[in-house]
Amino acid sequence: MTETLISLISILLGIIGAILMGFTFKKYSFGLVGNTISGVFGSIFFIKFFGRLGFSPTFIVENSTFNVSLLILNCIVSFFGGVLGLLLIKIIDFKMNKKAAN
């Protein structure tokens, strides 16, 4: 697996996390397209932000070896990054609509 493939898998897991969150909790949903976009950005943000701790795709395939435990950690962070990305966008949407109503 290359770093690019690991990054794409991470983004896919972020999308799945956001879509599942929107499907499970309807009040947090922005529809399929909105959930997908928030999952992509949430996943990318969390992997870039927390990946510096040592589980970014670069560290997973470092020195031509493959570290499975770092890949699992990367996948978990990507999934929850998509979920938290959707929550953050919903909070921003709520605050903006609240100010517009006043």
Score class of each variant (00 low, 15 high):
Met1Lys: 03
Met1Trp: 09
Glu3Leu: 02
Glu3Pro: 01
Ser7Phe: 14
Leu8Ala: 05
Ile9Glu: 08
Ser10Glu: 09
Ile11Ser: 04
Ile11Leu: 13
Leu12Pro: 00
Gly14Asp: 04
Ile16Asn: 02
Ala18Val: 01
Ile19Val: 15
Met21Trp: 05
Met21Gly: 06
Met21Ala: 10
Phe23Asp: 10
Lys26Arg: 13
Lys27Ser: 11
Tyr28Cys: 06
Tyr28Val: 11
Ser29Pro: 12
Ser29Trp: 06
Gly31Ser: 08
Gly31Pro: 05
Gly34Ile: 00
Asn35Phe: 04
Thr36His: 05
Ile37Arg: 01
Ser38Cys: 13
Ser38Trp: 08
Ser38Gly: 11
Val40Asn: 05
Ser43His: 04
Ser43Gly: 11
Ile44Lys: 06
Ile44Val: 15
Ile44Asn: 09
Phe45Asp: 12
Phe49Gln: 09
Phe49Lys: 03
Gly51His: 05
Ser56Glu: 07
Pro57His: 00
Thr58Ser: 14
Thr58Asn: 10
Ile60Thr: 05
Ser64Gly: 09
Ser64Cys: 03
Val68Trp: 10
Asn74His: 15
Ile76Gly: 05
Ser78Gly: 15
Phe79Pro: 12
Leu84Cys: 10
Leu88His: 00
Leu88Cys: 05
Ile89Ala: 10
Lys90Ala: 08
Ile91Ser: 05
Ile91Ala: 13
Asp93Glu: 12
Phe94Leu: 11
Phe94Met: 04
Phe94Glu: 10
Lys95Glu: 11
Met96Asn: 14
Met96Ile: 15
Asn97Leu: 12
Lys99Ile: 11
Lys99Pro: 00
Ala101Glu: 09
